[in-house]
Every structure is written in structure tokens, then in C-alpha cells.
Design a protein around this nucleic acid. Sequence first.
DNA 1: CATGAATGAGGGTTCATTCAT
DNA 2: CATGAATGAACCCTCATTCAT
Lengths: 240, 240, 240, 240
Amino acid sequence: MPTDRPPMRADARRNRERVMRAALEAFAADGRLVPLDEIARRAGVGAGTVYRNFATKEALFEAVVSDRVRAMVDEARALGAADDPGAAFYDFLARVVEAAMVNHALCEALMEQGAGALEGECMDAAFTDALDVLLRRAIEAGDVRGDVDVHEVRTLMNGCMAMERFRRAAVPPRRITALALDALRPRQDVTKQGNETEVSRKDGACEICDRPLNTSRTGRPARYCGPACRQKAHRRRTRA
Amino acid sequence: MPTDRPPMRADARRNRERVMRAALEAFAADGRLVPLDEIARRAGVGAGTVYRNFATKEALFEAVVSDRVRAMVDEARALGAADDPGAAFYDFLARVVEAAMVNHALCEALMEQGAGALEGECMDAAFTDALDVLLRRAIEAGDVRGDVDVHEVRTLMNGCMAMERFRRAAVPPRRITALALDALRPRQDVTKQGNETEVSRKDGACEICDRPLNTSRTGRPARYCGPACRQKAHRRRTRA
Amino acid sequence: MPTDRPPMRADARRNRERVMRAALEAFAADGRLVPLDEIARRAGVGAGTVYRNFATKEALFEAVVSDRVRAMVDEARALGAADDPGAAFYDFLARVVEAAMVNHALCEALMEQGAGALEGECMDAAFTDALDVLLRRAIEAGDVRGDVDVHEVRTLMNGCMAMERFRRAAVPPRRITALALDALRPRQDVTKQGNETEVSRKDGACEICDRPLNTSRTGRPARYCGPACRQKAHRRRTRA
Amino acid sequence: MPTDRPPMRADARRNRERVMRAALEAFAADGRLVPLDEIARRAGVGAGTVYRNFATKEALFEAVVSDRVRAMVDEARALGAADDPGAAFYDFLARVVEAAMVNHALCEALMEQGAGALEGECMDAAFTDALDVLLRRAIEAGDVRGDVDVHEVRTLMNGCMAMERFRRAAVPPRRITALALDALRPRQDVTKQGNETEVSRKDGACEICDRPLNTSRTGRPARYCGPACRQKAHRRRTRA
DNA sequence: CATGAATGAGGGTTCATTCAT
DNA sequence: CATGAATGAACCCTCATTCAT
């Protein structure tokens, strides 16, 4: 059965996408605070065009974050069959938190309860369900404590997102998330320290100040942006 | 160092205090969102009077939260000589989080970085310093991992405050904070499980759903509001 | 006189009719308030198509109501030869009011004066003329007071339409119209004419055109603003 | 018991009055259509000042029309002891209509049903009650037909207001009102009651409440939807 | 010095009309 | 020629801050 509506006109689709892209950027930067007119301006369209595509500002917000969360749910489902359930679970959490670090809207939406921006498209429940699958497998594999449920994990994830967003300047990104997520590991599991070693660098950023690294193609990969941060890291390692 | 200004008149001081009390309540409930006029109304004064005492709405916010944080700093300092450094440290954190649970303004202020509401009166630094003392003693006593610094603790505390504020409905209050703070305990310290046992009930509320308990003066104190929650707690204990 | 334009294409005419049908329904329900997009949607066409057929929303409104009024004019003309002039007259009025009860657009249009929606197609004048024929015959037959003219009847009809639209809940439909139209019937007794004599002048305004009078302190009070209106009043008095 | 609030400041009261005066003029000219900013501009104040005094535009409208209606209710009550009940009744109606002629807001408000602008201050009911007193006395004095109730009078008044507002240019002001109100006067001859008999039922609806009738194919056609309405009709017929 | 009235710049939203596809 | 997307001016309302009383 084909849909009733004809395919969107090319220019309309282009504009809709421009609006969503502009909204994504704007909401990511300032959350719901950003004025709708600002989004329209950034998209290069009139306010009316935004309202043609989205009934309210909130609907636009929902669309933007639901889109993003849908992608994450897909990711989670893809990880459901991974070889290493523990890694799949922890990696997924880390990726969500990573995404929220650069997207305040995502952060806001994932943290909301009942009647939040993700309720309309049931993305909140879908996210919880997909996460639950990963969690259960990780528990079975002995990589996560057995006494936590998915709601606690989501709450902990909220905390991680908040911590990265409101982390003290002296704390390098991702580190505190790694530490907090460690609380999910089984107690007896001391052979795998997780925390210290898990903080693998996924991109070329200084481990201390998070500034992009001048990567050189040859030699050992750089971990710090310069001598100052290297020294700081040294102090941190030797402090205790 | 005495100030140049003459001492405040009695009625003026009374007004200032009324404004601060009203602002405390209002900000605690809604954070910065509350309109200034609402505060003035609650204080029983005109908006002009608020502005006579505080240059801007933000200045009032600063004053209110700095006051509250000052009291906490005092608390922390008092705990600096406690017999059990570990307990002092963890209790203090728990108390701060508890306070933030009923005071959104405090939560907002403590989480802010650089040029936040606590900077004006240096309360942010004072808080960090006081916390640092507790932290170092707890590390020395072996109750906290040696590889965390005070900035990480503050960041983790931010996460706890956020988690309590945005906790999933199925998660009882305080539990997730206990779990997260556990991440600070040294790894080898498995004799003291902390998490499960640390969650002591400070008031008469169901451990599962947080509703007030019908306390009976005799017999063993109730922990749950009814059979449903007791069963749920049992499932949670035996799930793994 | 044939128009210069070629006959409309079949699909174009079909579209025009669909728009008018949709507009009829929509305007009937909400009057001019209904958004044009809503009409286009109901007609299953784009807004542009509406504008291709009607220069403005108002033009569409005119077309719709003129159509409806044209049908009524035809009705009135058909009644011009009825056996019972009184019944023809009163029935026609009742039918118009009845129609306006379910068609707010018709109600709006018939009530408007000068440059209203019916002016463009001269339907207002045509309606008045057709009604006038019925009125004169009814007067001749002794079923309507001789001292009313068609403008008064139209005005009274406006009142009836308004009364049915804004009638108190406790008043059954049509009853108040019947009561008001009764005022047109000749008085069986001629001792108390009521109408003419009751209209006492409360202020110094011309009885015909309502402009303020140049009152003179002496002599008989003026009733008209000048010779033109005096003559008009005379005609009105002697018309029947 | 004195009121809690101190008397309004002189300038504030002046501004409030300016707003109400401006609103009176503007609403009188264009009804609710007039933009609030326009009212503010006419009053020489900012929009915020209007909102300081009136919670919403509708509240301002209510205040303006309630004020006016209150004065009319007072007038009606003062007329309750007049020597000539008939004159009092008809004069009052004429005055209301006269007022509505120059005040579209008043016209709108008086015509509205349920939850209209006059409901908030119960002015609608007060108006009806006060009018009812005049009506009953006029009926007793034999100056008004005994078979009309106050709701019909209000509805008729609605019609008069509408007629004056939408009167044909050729009809002098007040004349049509006089004519319509004449319908309330008792008929000298009672042989032809007109009203009751003219209202022929065109469709199967209850004569009282207008609900569809359960028509039976045999026997006399039903006129009422049930015993309740039949009784009500009986009361209406025998009331005089 | 207190009061609370006034300001006015925005913010979200609607809709008649135009115009690119 | 139809489509329906885009425009943008209004509209109602809020609230931090200033200032006359």
C-alpha cells in the first residue's frame, strides 16, 4: 500500500532538512532556550516555514532528538549480538554520553521523565528496551553487577551526561564517566580494572584539556597537546 | 577591616532578610526560572526593594546560594577533625546531594563552572578547598581511592545531584547516589560493601517508592510502604 | 453579451466547483474566520488553485454567498405570483432566516452594508428588489402594515437572523423570529398606532439622517436637519 | 473590615483609567478585534502596563463591558419603582439599544451566551434579573404581552442591537427598534394571536427544546420531546 | 528609603498572499 | 495550470529592570 501523500517536493525537502540541521545545531548548543526565530534565521527561512514543517517549537525539538535517539537505538540493537556483551554494553553507554557532550538537546531529552520530548515517538521506551537487552546480556556474561536494573542504568547514564556537561575544568572529558560506569562492574572483578585502562582515546584529543591534537602520521601517537598537559598528567599519575 | 558604610538600619536589614528568605524558597523550588516579581511578592516587598539590596536578579541568586554553600563549607570544616575520615567524607557528600534534592538553586549553583553564581563570593573555591581536606584525609585513611582529585569528586557530586533530580521513577531516591559514590572506594575494599548497606534511611520513607511510612512505635521499623514494595525489594535483592 | 475568454477547461471548472463547495461548508460553519488553507484542504486542492479562481479570500466569500443569495432571489421571484401575497412574503422571510441559522456566512453577508460581500455581483440590490415586490404585494393585500418600506424589512430581517444566532438558550428557535415579524402585521385597531408616536426624540438629531440639529431656543423644535430630510420624511409618511 | 490593599497610587489609578478609557473607545469602535497594542498606544502606555492591570486582553474587555453593564443594571433597578411601568420597561430597552449603537463591545457582550464576557462578574445574570423585574411590572400593568418571558425579551433586545448596528442606510436610527419592540405590546384584539399559530413546525423538532422528535407514523403528530417540555409549553401558554 | 507602576524588547504562533517547482 | 511551500507582518503575552511617587 503506497502512502497517500505524494513525495515531498525537492525544495521543500531541502528546506525541511535545512531547518532540522539548523535546529540540531542550535538546540545542541543551547537546548530549548534558543529562540525559534534564531533557528529560522540560521536555516535561512522564515518562521512560517518552520511552522509548516513542525506544529510547535517543541515538536521540532522532538523531531530533532527523536531522530538522534532512533539512530542510537539502532546502534544498540546492532550491538545486541556482539561477541563481547560487556564491551558492547559499556561502549554503548560511552557513545551515548559522548553524543550528549556535544548535544545539549540530546542530553535534555534523555534525562526527561514522563511526557518528555521522546514520548511522542516512543523513543524513550525504545531506548530503554534496547539498553535493557544489552544490560541483561552483560549481566549474564558477568561483566555487570547483577543487582542493577535498566532504570538504574539510565539514571546513572543521566548522571554521566550531566557530569560531562558540568565537569570541572580540571577533569578531562570521559574520565569521570569511566569512573562512574565502573560502579556497575561486579565487585570481585578486580582483574580487569576497567576504569584506568578503559579510557581509550577514541579521537585525537588531549587527554587532559581535550583540545585537538596535532597528529603526526609517524611515530608514537601523541596523547597530550603539549608539555604543560603532559606534566599535569604526570602529576595526576603520581599524586596518590 | 571595617566597611565604610554605616550599619544598616534595622528595618532595612529586616527587609533584606525577608527577601533572601523568600528568594531561598522560590529559587529552591524553581531555580532561576522564578520571576523576580514573584519573589518580591512572597517577601511582601516591592520589586524596587529587591533591587535596592541586590543589583540584579542574578546577584540575589548568588547571595542566596552563597549563603547556603557557606553553611556547607562550615559543616565540612567541622568534619575535618572527625574520627572516621571516610565516614566524614561520604556523609558530607550525601548531605550535599540531599540538600540539592530539595533545592534546585543549590543544585544549579554547585554545578556551574567559571563565573557561576558562587564565584562572586569565592564560595565555589571555598567549597572545593573544604571538600579537598575531607578527601585527602579519607584517602590517607584508605577509604577513598588514591587516584581521584577533588575536581573529580566535585564532578561526581554534580552527577549525583543530577541523577537524583532526573532519576527514573522506578529508582528509589539516594540509591543511585550510593552506587555512584561507591566508585570512589578503593578496589580491594570488598569487605565493606558500602552500597547496599550504606543506604540508611534518614526519614520514614519506603525504600522502594519513597512514600511516607506508617511508622509503628513498637516492633521492628518498617522499611517498605506495603507488600508490593517489599516484594519488589526482594526481587531486586535476589535478581542476580 | 458573451465573454471574451474561452470556455473554461473541464478540470478547471471542476476545481472551481470543488473549491466553492468546500468554501460553502467552511464559511457556513465559521464565517470569514475560517483560514483559507482550511478551505483548500477540504477542497483537496492547493491554496494556489483557490487564488487562481478567486483573487482574494474575500472574493471567494463573495462568490459563495452571492451564489446562495442568487438562489434566494430566484425563490423570491417565483413567489411573486403566489396566490397569497401575505403568506409568500412571510414565508420567504422565514426561509431566509432559517437558511441563515445554518449558514453564518449568509448571515454575515446579508447584514453587511455598502461594499459588503454582496455588492460585487449586485446581489444585495437584487435581493432588495425581489423582496420589495413581495412586500408591496403583501401590503396591497392588507397583510403587512403600509408604513414600512423594504429597507426596514431588510433591517428587521437582519434582526431576526441575529436573534436566532444569539438567542438565549431558553428561547426555542424560530419563536422570536415569529414574534418580531408579527410587528409587520397591520394593527387591527387603529386607535393606538404605537410605532410612529412612540419614537420620541430624546436628543437633538434629525429623524431621517441622524445628524445633529441646529436647535433654536425659540419656536417649534426642529425635527429635521434640512429641507431634504423633511421632504423624505413626508414621502415616507404618505407612501403607503 | 477594611480591604487589605492600600489605595492605588494616584498615577497608577490615572493610568488604569486611561487604559480603560482607551479600551472603551477602541472596543466600542471595533469590538474585540482591536489589537491590544493599539489600546496601549492610545492610552499612551506600554503594553506591560495594560497587563499589569488586566490579566489578559479578554479580562480588559470584561472589565470595560461589565462596568458599562453595571451602570445599566443600576439604571434598571432605579426604574423598578417608576410610576409608569410600561414606560420604564420600554425606555430602559431603548436606552440599552441606544448605548449599544455607539459601543460595539457592549453589543457583543450582551449578545454572548454562556461563558461570555459578562459571566465573570455575573453581570449577565444581574442584567437579566433587573430586566425581569421591569418586565413583570410592565406585564402586570398591561403594557406588555403576558406571554413573553425575560429570555425572549433579551433575545429581542439582541435583535434590536443588531438591527441598529446593521441597519440599512435608508432606515433612520431607532425606528426599527421601536417597531420591533412594538411586538411586545398587547394586542387589542385577541382573535388572532399571530405568534403562537404562525410558528408552523417545518421539521420534527420539539417546540421547546428543539431536540428531534420521535415521530410516530400514526396518531396526532407529537409537538414535544417529552412530558417535561409539554408542561413547560403549557406554562408558557397560560402564564399571562 | 520603599513602593510597585511602567517600560519595551522579545518569544511563540497564525495566516493571507506570493511564487518557485 | 496546479501545487503547496515560503513569506513576514501581526498578535498576545512575559519579565528584568528603571523610576516617579
